[in-house]
Write a protein that binds this DNA or RNA. Structure first.
Lengths: 107, 107
DNA sequence: CCTTTTCGTAAGTCATTGCTTACGGTAAGC
DNA sequence: GCTTACCGTAAGCAATGACTTACGAAAAGG
């Protein structure tokens, strides 16, 4: 049910870049913002959206706020995609088999 | 590398609904639009975006245009997600193992 | 206590975009 | 040939959203 927000969150290039920057491991807001073409508040807003989508988690560490990737959000998108994947492939194969006269085996 | 457009395409609820309607099999534009809360031209525009994202294909059939799901677009999103999945889980586990230990000092 | 660092949020601006109605174009039916 | 069915596109409009600067709050450090 969260995959909707996750798709919306990952649709924005800047937000994807923020997200990808957390792939190697947890980072503070300032650390993420460093080397990005947008301001730190912008990064903060992006992280908020990612958090509401279940894609990241945060915890305080002194005055800094450290963000990490939350596998839960990724899992939601993945399962939606996989469920889709099966039906789509089945329909795709059914369509492909009807075009030529002979049906094909595996190979 | 079309996963960027795919994410942007799947971010919109109406467009996802159009996409999901093709899951059972190919449909004409009118058939997709029937039973949707938006107009037929709106559906047409959504299908155009989905097509440019590599998520659907179309072919003429008389005066109507039949759209089907293109597994290629799904595949692109899936592989991006999977590649992400591994690194994210590894980092997540590494973080979980270090938490019960001592706190860390990062500059 | 006062200053510094780090961060989230408010307010405002500007571009993007999803929707509608209107129109033109092509294939089928009579 | 003329009408009907089906579809893509153009133009216009209203809403969403991404970004900036400015400000306030909370923790650390002298």
């Amino acid at each position: 049910m969260t995959y909707e927000k996750a798709f919306a969150a990952l649709a924005d290039p800047s937000r994807r870049r923020v997200f990808e920057r957390l792939r190697a491991g947890p980072l503070s807001v300032g650390a993420v913002a460093k080397g990005m073409p947008v301001s730190r508040p912008a990064v903060s807003q992006h992280l908020k959206v990612l958090k509401e989508a279940g894609l990241v988690t945060d915890h305080a560490e002194g005055t800094r706020r450290v963000y990490s990737i939350d596998p839960q959000g990724l899992s939601a998108v993945r399962s939606w995609l996989d469920q889709f994947w099966d039906d789509a492939l089945a329909a795709f194969r059914a369509e492909a088999e009807q075009k030529p006269k002979t049906k094909k085996g595996k190979s």
